[in-house]
Simulated assay, not measured.
Amino acid sequence: MLFTYIITASYAIVSAFPSKYTRRGGSCDKADSRTPDNSWDSHLHVLNPIDYPIEEGSEYTPGVYTVWDNAIFEKRLGPEHVVLIQPSIYGTNNTLLLESLRAYGPDRARGVVVFDIEDISMAKLNQWHVWGVRGVRINFLSTGQTPPADELERTLSKYSNMVRSLGWVVQLYISMDGIQLIEDFLPTLGVQIVFDHIGVPDIPKQNSTKSYNPSDIAGFDSMVRLLQQNVAWVKISGPYRISNVQGPIYHELDPLILELFRAAPSRLVYASDWPHTRFEGLDIRPWTSHLLELTEGQESVRESLFRDNAIVLWQAEDK
């Protein structure tokens, strides 16, 4: 109850006194007025290595980013609803995520966890579902390379079988060229697949940042076909993780994003990737405003990207 009070109070305080609050990455000025009401931020992390120690051997140690910090950030950015994603540094210990999720409450938030398929029970998953968990994340990029197709299929089958009855998604952090390895297999799983960070494409390096054809990127057409078959979704997020150019706008990604807007507008969700781990201090608001500019004159695309698709994907009407 105390956490819930803190979250509710923080939104009220920041609204009343916006000029008093600053945070790494910018001042607490108003959100872009073009952001649709009741928007969703579909990918962020809550981190606290002081009170919730990270796994031994983790590749990085983040700063402290609490639910209070996120409430301030979201007020500056615009979304009123959030999806908490389990970060790799906590492994399968979802304690901080679950406590934060309960603090937000089911009207405001959803969560995606990580668990060991050999050490989990349906009773636990059912309890997490009540608290707002709607997916499991599988990180295939932590090893630095995509596993062989047969290994991918075995892993995905196990997790899909575990969460299918709950209606959860299977969220994949995988390179785009790996998607083509499992394109034919994914529709057989009977679950919805979510690709992190625009599918993690290998953007061509070139002098002209707008001349490439997205279909020339390995795996892009496979991903689009899965979107159009209503098998998969893509998070429009993390541009700094895939772009070859310095932000804050990342124009280099426009051809790819615009093609996704054209090909599968009902299968995309916006996400901030806050607090931008390994890129801490970055301000995502200019790029978010750029996305709003890219949807100028396409109100349905804008509302789908920032709100309507997330409501469907995260079962937001299912309390």
Rank of each mutant, 00 (worst) to 15 (best):
S121R: 12
S121I: 08
M122C: 06
M122V: 14
M122E: 14
K124M: 13
L125Q: 09
N126D: 10
W128N: 04
H129F: 08
H129Y: 15
H129V: 00
V130H: 15
V130R: 15
V130A: 14
V130K: 14
W131K: 15
V133Q: 03
V136T: 10
V136E: 05
V136Q: 03
I138F: 14
N139F: 12
F140S: 04
L141E: 12
L141D: 12
L141Y: 08
L141H: 12
L141C: 00
S142R: 15
G144W: 11
P147F: 14
P148Q: 10
P148W: 04
A149P: 00
A149W: 03
E151K: 14
L152I: 04
L152M: 14
R154C: 01
T155S: 15
T155G: 11
K158M: 08
K158R: 15
Y159A: 00
S160P: 07
S160G: 04
N161W: 09
N161R: 14
V163W: 05
V163R: 08
S165I: 07
S165L: 07
S165F: 03
S165R: 10
L166F: 10
L166S: 01
V170E: 11
Q171M: 05
I174N: 05
S175Q: 13
M176V: 00
G178C: 04
G178I: 10
Q180S: 15
L181Y: 14
L181E: 05
D184M: 10
F185Y: 15
F185P: 03
F185S: 06
L186I: 06
P187I: 02
P187S: 02
P187Q: 07
P187E: 06
T188H: 13
T188R: 14
T188F: 09
G190W: 09
Q192R: 13
F195G: 08
F195H: 09
D196I: 00
D196A: 01
G199D: 00
V200N: 05
P201Y: 01
D202T: 10
D202C: 08
D202I: 11
I203M: 02
Q206G: 08
Q206C: 02
N207F: 11
N207T: 06
T209S: 07
K210M: 10
S211T: 13
Y212Q: 03
Y212F: 05
Y212G: 01
N213Y: 12
P214F: 02
P214H: 05
I217L: 06
I217C: 01
A218Y: 10
A218P: 07
A218F: 05
G219E: 01
M223F: 08
M223P: 01
R225Y: 07
R225F: 05
L227C: 12
Q228R: 14
Q228P: 04
Q229L: 10
Q229G: 03
Q229K: 15
N230H: 15
V234M: 07
K235W: 09
K235A: 00
I236E: 00
I236W: 02
S237G: 04
P239T: 01
P239V: 02
P239Y: 13
N244Q: 07
N244G: 06
V245P: 04
Q246H: 12
Q246S: 05
G247L: 03
P248E: 12
I249E: 12
I249H: 11
Y250A: 00
H251I: 00
E252M: 06
E252L: 03
L253I: 11
D254A: 08
